[in-house]
Design a protein around this nucleic acid. Structure first.
Lengths: 120, 120
DNA sequence: GCGTCACATCGATGTTTGTCAATATCTTCC
DNA sequence: GGAAGATATTGACAAACATCGATGTGACGC
């Protein structure tokens, strides 16, 4: 059991995003933040997130591929980018692979845009 | 005077971002959203936004260049990306160019991560 | 074990992006 | 107008990225 846990090495970038208005931001933090934005910096990936955000639960890859006008390998590639960034979760159900949004990660990402102090 | 106004043709991508959980999202909307993320998908640009977000007003390019370990042309290039995306505002003051964050745009961008309905 | 299906991975290819030296452009002063 | 300073733009280059056909891997049924 513990051998399995140790395989989860790198933390997903979206798990820790520094607020854009943080008083201090290291190069690592900026790099981490940019990684998450990079995962969303493709229109097809934005569309994929939208499809999952409006679904009633996890969605099968086969259905996502139908929604996005791309080949199966390309969709798989994009999904992996989003999972690696920590924005999506993947679940194998027999032959089928299901994907869903990671709500906490997306909402955490939204909160980094809080700029503080009303500056009128 | 009106001749000057007509030069402002294209709307900045950050001016209109579709919520990630929107019930409908066209390819144009996904493309527009991806453009804004693309502007932030570079660690140096994230750092620049952070420098400006924590500053007490507009900041001169010369000071931004000191904060970021890049050459002057590269900083200028990055700043232009952020201005074009609508995330920063630029102001010429004689020989000096000053940049500041567009608070509304950044906060608007943060709001697109609202996913709606608490799904516990 | 074999065959089938789902889908992840690989490799080739074309496109996009980030970097900097060089240069162009703009502002200001004499 | 010419010179100096600030900074935007250009072009070359290397790295990264998006795409898809081909293929590899895993799950499942017989």
């Amino acid at each position: 059991m513990s051998a399995v846990r140790t395989l989860e090495v790198a933390e997903a970038p979206a798990a820790c995003c520094t607020p854009l208005a943080a008083s201090e931001m290291s190069e690592e933090e900026a790099d981490n933040t940019a990684r998450v934005f990079k995962a969303l910096a493709d229109p097809h990936r934005v569309r994929i997130v939208n499809v999952l955000a409006t679904a009633e639960g996890a969605v099968c890859v086969c259905d996502i591929t139908d929604e996005v006008a791309l080949s199966q390998p390309t969709v798989s590639f994009h999904l992996k980018k989003l999972v690696t960034a920590g924005l999506l979760d993947r679940e194998q159900r027999g032959v089928w692979a299901y994907y869903s949004i990671n709500r906490e990660a997306l909402e955490r990402l939204g909160s980094i845009f809080q700029l503080g102090g009303a500056r009128t």
